[in-house]
């Protein structure tokens, strides 16, 4: 694969909250994600960036077991993923869902509690309060009883974030949460994510807007099938690395916008 410049994350001595070793995913003959090793730490907010088709979402989905992996070990908080499901909250791409599904906003957020409720566990006042509080945090409380299909794209995204919040996880993984959302939603989501980081959670976001990387994220993972570079934003988010990841597809003007 490409001669990637690996920024080794040797400085951090804490146990990583998400560890990926040797992750390879393949749809056909060619690997979509090749031999990825990663460590993500608590109190950080990481952007996964790379060109279209670079395997950003695929890597995340394979790491979470949504799509099968050819090889690779995943650990969450130093234990195998299978034992740590409750520590993970995953927010899929909005477009992957049929929003005509017969459910209200609060129904969808309540689904975040299903794993804790089990098959027949009763929904009590405490559970309802958690749903209310999560909706309040993302500014969607007024829409609690609204049918999900009647929401704007940004509102739908916030509902998904609320569902992740009620899961009360340690690691939050979001797939393109800012795709096609309004400015108010973007601001609301980033505020919540920064709150999560400041309370010791780990936030990983598949991100497509290079212009906001420096503002939003303290860590960056650059990927194009395999890892190009990973580490603190100021070390990794450089012109050279971006050119490596995007294969020279970024014009000088684009790099200006990015702030480099």
């Amino acid at each position: 694969m490409s001669k990637g410049l690996h920024v080794v994350q040797g400085k951090d001595q804490r146990p990583s909250s998400l560890t990926i070793r040797g992750l390879t995913v393949s749809y056909g003959a060619d690997p979509a994600v090749f031999s990825v090793d990663l460590d993500v730490y608590p109190d950080t907010m990481t952007a996964i960036i790379g060109p279209n088709g670079a395997g950003k979402s695929t890597m995340l989905k394979a790491a979470m077991g949504i799509i099968p992996r050819l090889s690779g070990q995943i650990q969450v908080l130093s234990r195998p993923l299978e034992e740590q499901r409750s520590a993970i909250a995953y927010v899929p791409q909005r477009a992957s869902i049929d929003w005509d599904f017969p459910a209200t906003v609060q129904d969808v957020v309540m689904m975040g509690l299903y794993p804790k409720l089990g098959l027949l566990g009763r929904i009590n006042a405490n559970h309802k309060a958690q749903v209310t509080s999560a909706l309040d945090r993302v500014g969607m409380l007024d829409f609690a009883k609204r049918q999900i299909g009647q929401l704007s794209g940004g509102q739908q995204q916030r509902v998904f974030l609320a569902r992740a919040l009620v899961q009360d996880a340690q690691v939050y993984l979001l797939d393109e949460p800012f795709a096609g959302v309004d400015a108010a939603t973007e601001k609301a989501i980033i505020t919540v994510l920064h709150d999560l980081r400041s309370t010791g959670k780990t936030v990983v976001v598949v991100h497509h807007d290079l212009a906001t990387v420096i503002d939003y994220f303290d860590q960056v993972i650059l990927i194009n099938k395999s890892i190009i570079a990973a580490g603190p934003t100021q070390d990794v988010f450089t012109t050279e690395n971006l050119q490596l990841a995007y294969g020279g597809r970024l014009a000088a003007t684009q790099l200006d916008v990015v702030g480099l």
């Binding site: 979470m64 299978e82 909250a89 995953y90 869902i97 459910a103 689904m111 299903y114």
Partner: peptide, 20 residues
């Protein structure tokens, strides 16, 4: 008995898988 899993796999199968 399986109302909740059935709802989850019908609405958001990926999410259901992340929950094991």
């Amino acid at each position: 008995l399986f109302w909740r899993p059935l709802t989850l796999i019908s609405f958001d199968e990926g999410f259901a898988r992340t929950q094991g």
